[in-house]
Computed example of a mutant assay.
Amino acid sequence: MREKYIDLAIHKLAVAFASLDLTFHPMNTGVPGDITSYWPVNDVIWNYDVRNYPKYLIRSTGKNNLNWIMQNTSVLHFCGKHKPWQDDYKNPFRILYLHYLNRMMRKIK
């Protein structure tokens, strides 16, 4: 059941990216290389790599904490082989992922 909603979310992202006239494929693991020719991309807002949370936090002198991320970040990128939907995922972003998953499930019902 969860896979159905993930597929739906990927489809909606693909449609949103298509409206921006950018090359996008749902199986890409990164932003297209030429996207910066359109505009400079702030990765903290548009492609937040959750593995780098400590680095982002230090660079922002503590400003970009979880509360800031929830209010300002558009895309959380769960890079690497460990994913928040896996039971053994240890990153603090798992709770954020589960929060948004539960919100989505409530809206669908």
Rank of each mutant, 00 (worst) to 15 (best):
Lys4Thr: 12
Lys4Gln: 13
Tyr5Lys: 05
Tyr5Val: 08
Ile6Ala: 06
Ile6Asp: 04
Ala9Val: 09
His11Arg: 10
Lys12Phe: 08
Leu13Gly: 02
Ala14Leu: 01
Phe17Val: 08
Ala18Ser: 13
Ala18Asp: 14
Ala18Pro: 00
Ala18Met: 08
Ser19His: 10
Leu20Glu: 05
Asp21Ala: 12
Asp21Val: 05
Leu22Asp: 02
Thr23Trp: 10
Thr23Ala: 14
Thr23Ile: 13
Phe24Ser: 03
His25Val: 11
His25Cys: 10
Pro26Thr: 01
Pro26Asp: 01
Met27Pro: 00
Asn28Arg: 03
Thr29Cys: 01
Thr29Glu: 10
Val31Phe: 02
Val31Gly: 00
Pro32His: 11
Asp34Ser: 10
Asp34Ile: 03
Ile35Ala: 15
Ser37Ile: 04
Ser37Glu: 14
Tyr38Arg: 09
Pro40Val: 01
Asn42Glu: 13
Asn42Phe: 05
Asp43Ser: 12
Val44Arg: 14
Ile45Gly: 00
Trp46Arg: 06
Asn47Glu: 04
Asp49Tyr: 04
Val50Ile: 06
Val50Met: 01
Asn52Met: 10
Asn52Gln: 13
Asn52Glu: 12
Tyr53Gly: 01
Pro54Asp: 09
Lys55Leu: 13
Tyr56Ser: 04
Leu57Thr: 04
Leu57Val: 00
Ile58Lys: 15
Arg59Val: 00
Ser60Val: 07
Thr61Asn: 15
Thr61Asp: 14
Gly62Val: 10
Lys63Tyr: 10
Lys63Met: 11
Lys63Leu: 14
Asn64Cys: 15
Asn64Thr: 11
Trp68Pro: 05
Gln71Thr: 05
Ser74Thr: 11
Ser74Ala: 11
His77Ser: 10
Phe78Asn: 06
Phe78Gln: 10
Phe78Ile: 09
Lys83Ser: 05
